[in-house]
Simulated assay, not measured.
Amino acid sequence: MSTIIYPSPIFGPVHSRRLGISLGINLMPADGKICTFDCIYCECGFNKDHRTKTPHPTREHVAKALEAKLKELKTQDIHPDVLTFAGNGEPTSHPDFAGVIDDTIRLRNEYCPQAKISVLSNSTFIHRPKIHEALSKVDNNILKLDTINADYINKVDRPTQPSYDVNRIIADIKSFNGQAIIQTMFMKGETEDGTNIDNTGEEFVKPWLDAVKEIAPREVMIYTIDRETPDHSLQKATHEELDAIRDRVVALGIPCTASY
């Protein structure tokens, strides 16, 4: 069983394939994982294997730890390209997410004004007014949309909320009026129980492209597996497959990057 459980609330900086030198902000407890998805490809492992026993870090703790780290990096002449909310679960599930965003903007402006603030979210809470408002303040509001196929979502992303509805998610992403970035995982192979999870074929790509066109995001980021996954039978999409999908997004007039 492979997992990466990140320190909390600050980790890195690390080199991100998509974002550059990234200082991570993990709003989940450091002893496990809390997420509204239970993705079979998650580098943090399956939810059931990492139940937390400690609470979320408080808003005050996050701000204090972030300021200390930014001061340290400044003395080392290290300049992060981005402050990235990621880690052991869904960052917008933090009980004071909006307040943490306000603190992070203030500290970024003071210590590293050139850095962008990014949030990697699975989109499950973007319908909440306070979450929507907070995400509208950040530089890179990166929202997951792996497919629009409900059966695939239930087999691969595995939402923990019975009310999850991809059509509502699409409408909620549209409500950012072009200021969201869509992030999509493409991969191949089968699950350990033999279920085919290849979403690189036309059956999945064409409807996804139609949704992307409807949403009209600022940018699209497509990627494939980078680290070992808890389901060990999954496979990377090829460079050629990702490049072909990227080119189709670009043909819609939407910037798109592919990470291999």
Score class of each variant (00 low, 15 high):
Ile4Glu: 13
Tyr6Arg: 09
Ser8Asp: 07
Val14Tyr: 12
Arg18Thr: 02
Leu19Lys: 05
Gly24Arg: 00
Ile25Lys: 03
Ile40Asn: 00
Thr58Glu: 12
Glu60Gly: 11
His61Thr: 11
Val62Tyr: 03
Ala63Tyr: 07
Glu67Ile: 09
Lys69Ser: 04
Leu70Asp: 07
Glu72Pro: 01
Glu72Asn: 06
Leu73Gln: 10
Pro91Val: 01
Thr92Ser: 10
His94Cys: 02
Phe97Val: 05
Val100Thr: 08
Thr104Arg: 04
Gln114Trp: 06
Lys116His: 10
Ser123His: 03
Lys130Arg: 09
His132Thr: 04
Val138Arg: 05
Leu145Tyr: 04
Ala150Arg: 12
Tyr152Ala: 08
Asp157Gln: 12
Ser163Val: 06
Phe176Tyr: 14
Gln183Asn: 14
Met185Phe: 11
Met187Leu: 15
Lys188Ala: 14
Glu192Pro: 00
Glu192His: 10
Thr195Lys: 10
Ile197Val: 15
Asn199His: 07
Gly201Ser: 13
Gly201Asp: 13
Glu219Leu: 14
Met221Asp: 04
Thr224Ala: 06
Arg227Val: 12
Arg227Met: 06
Arg227Asp: 11
Glu228Asp: 15
Leu234Met: 08
Ala237Gly: 14
Asp243Met: 15
Arg248Leu: 05
Ala251Tyr: 00
Leu252His: 02
Leu252Gln: 12
Cys256Val: 04
Thr257Asp: 13
